Simulated assay, not measured.
Amino acid sequence: MSAPVAEETAELDPLKSRPKGSSTEISGKSPLRIAFGRLMRDKIAVVCIGVVALFVLLAIFGPLISKAFGVTTDTQYPTQFLELNMIPKAEFGPPYGGFTMDHPFGIAPRTAIDNLAYWLEGARNSLQIASLATLTATVLGIVIGLLAGFMGGLVDRVLTFVTDLFLTLPFLLVALTIAPIVNERFRDNTDFYPTAQVISLVCVLSFFGWMGLARLIRGEVLSLREREFIHAARVMGMPTRRILVKELLPNIVAPIVVSTSLMLPAFVAAEAGLAYLGVGITSRPSWGQMLDQGTSFFSNYPLYLYEPLIAIVALVLALNLLGDAIRDALDPKTRR
């Protein structure tokens, strides 16, 4: 009877089954390390990380890649390279010709600008604007959500009213209203006009992206502020700023990361959509502008439309799937 009991005890307590003098140590893992390990075991998440990293590298090193191929967005090719109907000749890319090292993506109709240089510059601008808008919206959502949930009372009612007010404003209508104002105000200032367009677009995107995160954080803080460690911090005389930053913020990292990972692809698609409508970035290359111009030549030159369309779909899909994978990795109840 003693042998089975000893084996069962060894299975339940592995520390007792180790031989004396063994140097094997059992170390714990933080929740973030456990989540990172689960994320790395997800094959779809790993592929999505690779796709996103590829686009980021293309955006960062876009000027070097353009220089390696000897193309720029300012290059204007002579008119003899174009057909009478303003379509690139056959030797400058599909569907009329094969790929060439001089112009791997072909050249654009009407303007005869190299598509590769324009595509790379558009990727940089799209990711830059989406990242800035995501960062701004995340900071706004965190600050407003923390204050509304922790302070309560009049502060909570006012901030909740502001959140509901922004939710009632139609995003597209506000964007269509702000764009002509910015164009009229800064059009004459050619040096500051491109920067003004970027700032206005980042403000529009971020001001319409923080509300969901603020509501999520407010709900989390409402449940956390009644916990024992918050009451203990108040009794000890800890200032409110320290309670918000040191006590509450580390406990809501998971929802912030998930919300941010899902906010970025939405802003990438929104930036391209606004540029397609002509109210986004018009003074710099953009994937949305390529979509707008490519629709006019789709029947004769479909490559011009497919290049930005495939890029947007691949990047947004990878970011969305990566956001879902991060949410599953941070959720201790999931079995994925």
Rank of each mutant, 00 (worst) to 15 (best):
S259G: 14
V56A: 12
Y301G: 01
P88V: 11
V47L: 09
F267M: 11
V5G: 04
L58G: 12
E7W: 08
A270P: 11
I326Q: 00
L39A: 06
V71I: 10
I49L: 07
P94C: 11
S223M: 11
A117D: 02
Y118S: 09
T195A: 06
R185W: 12
L176D: 04
A53E: 00
T9E: 02
I181W: 11
V204W: 01
V155F: 07
R284H: 10
V258T: 13
A53D: 00
T334P: 00
V5F: 04
A269Y: 08
T282L: 00
M211T: 15
Q293A: 11
V143G: 03
G93Y: 10
A53S: 10
A318I: 09
F99N: 00
P285N: 05
T177L: 15
V56L: 08
S126A: 12
R41P: 00
I281Q: 06
R185V: 15
K333V: 13
V316A: 00
E247C: 02
I26L: 15
N251V: 07
A325C: 03
E7T: 09
M40F: 10
G93L: 13
F105Y: 07
D13W: 05
R218W: 10
V46Y: 06
G294T: 13
C203F: 15
S30F: 10
L309S: 14
F297T: 14
A232N: 13
Q128V: 12
V245R: 08
T75C: 03
M86E: 10
Y118V: 14
D292W: 15
T24K: 13
T138Q: 02
T240G: 07
S200R: 04
F61G: 09
L32S: 10
A45K: 01
L244P: 10
L249I: 11
L305Y: 13
Y304P: 01
D13G: 02
P88D: 04
S299A: 14
I178C: 08
Y304M: 12
L222Y: 07
F92V: 07
L54H: 01
I113Q: 06
W287L: 05
R110M: 12
T136N: 02
V162R: 00
